[in-house]
């Protein structure tokens, strides 16, 4: 809360002063209504709306980086709050009939606030389009931020399952092939043990960027679990998918990743497997994919022991 106050001292301070000025103006011009004239439903309705507007301002300021959109949204909401605040004040304080300015205080900030808010939302829309452009290859058609992966800027396993369900339906309807590729980094535990888990996370983030670069615009990539990435390749047959899987694998194998601490090169290799979707659900497809990967990995030393 302290940082919020520090960051937006001007805006919040101005709002506080204006609200107080209105209160003082009302008190000096009018007098208190007796308790039996209070209309509780109006007080709860108008006061509650004012409080909610204040909560919106705080949420907007807390959640957004500064900039034009934030400025417009908070100004607009500030006007709305002020108008509702004045509306609430006249529930408690009666002004003489000669006073006219209270109607102006109540009705002018409202349309101005609405206008600013609309402008803010309009720019927000454009901002969102720009962000969507950056999210290409990571999601399509829907977003669920609760399923974002905490380590890499990708969706997690649950996100993958939901996108896969959609992709399966789409592929079936359009009679187009859908290929799913899985990529697993060899001996990733060794990296974690030798260089620490923080370095392991950094490797995963670097790999995310690398893999994103090697995908086409309509492909999607997710982090399934640990060091396993899954790519959905719509409209891709087995042959083309094999070529792509090999390209992704060689991109990882040739990737020169350098340790964050001393710049030491950490060599990376990986193993890939793929399946082409049949008439099945996502759980079944994931199981086949997992078996294909297990088959591809088949450790040579296992039989020896």
């Amino acid at each position: 809360m302290k940082t919020l106050l520090q960051l937006h001292a001007m805006k919040l301070g101005a709002l506080f002063l204006l609200a107080n000025a209105a209160l003082v103006a009302f008190l000096s011009a009018g007098d208190f209504k007796p308790l039996e004239l209070w209309s509780w439903s109006d007080i709860i309705g108008e006061g509650g709306t004012a409080l909610l507007a204040l909560a919106w301002i705080i949420l907007v300021l807390k959640s957004r980086p500064a900039g034009l959109v934030t400025q417009l949204l908070s100004l607009g909401l500030g006007c709305l709050f002020f108008s509702w605040w004045v509306d609430t004040l006249d529930e408690f304080i009666r002004l003489p009939a000669s006073v006219q300015w209270d109607h102006w205080l109540e009705s002018i900030p409202m349309p101005v606030g609405m206008l600013l808010l609309t402008l803010g939302i309009f720019h927000w829309h454009h901002e969102q389009l720009a962000i969507n452009q950056q999210m290409v290859k990571r999601e399509k058609a829907f977003r669920e931020h609760r399923l974002f992966d905490p380590v890499t800027p990708l969706g997690g396993a649950e996100y993958l399952k939901q996108h896969l369900d959609l992709a399966l339906v789409e592929a079936r309807q359009q009679r187009l092939p859908l290929a799913v590729v899985i990529l697993d980094i060899d001996d990733f535990n060794r990296i974690n043990h030798q260089h620490g888990f923080q370095e392991g996370d950094a490797v995963l983030r670097a790999l995310t960027q690398l893999l994103l670069l090697n995908l086409r615009t309509h492909d999607l990539i997710f982090r399934l679990a640990g060091d396993r990435f899954v790519m959905l390749l719509p409209n891709t047959g087995e042959q083309q998918a094999t070529t792509m899987a090999q390209a992704l694998k060689s991109a990882v194998d040739h990737f020169a990743y350098h340790n964050q601490q001393n710049g030491e090169r950490i060599p990376l290799t990986c193993c890939s497997a793929l399946v082409v979707a049949k008439d099945e659900n996502s759980a079944h497809l994931m199981e086949r994919l997992h078996l294909a990967l297990a088959h591809a990995k088949q450790p040579p030393r296992l039989q020896r022991a």
Binding site: A157, K161, A225, G226, D227, R228, H290
Partner: peptide
């Protein structure tokens, strides 16, 4: 639901 974690680990 998180069967992939079991597979991996």
């Amino acid at each position: 639901r998180h069967i992939e974690q079991y597979w991996l680990h």
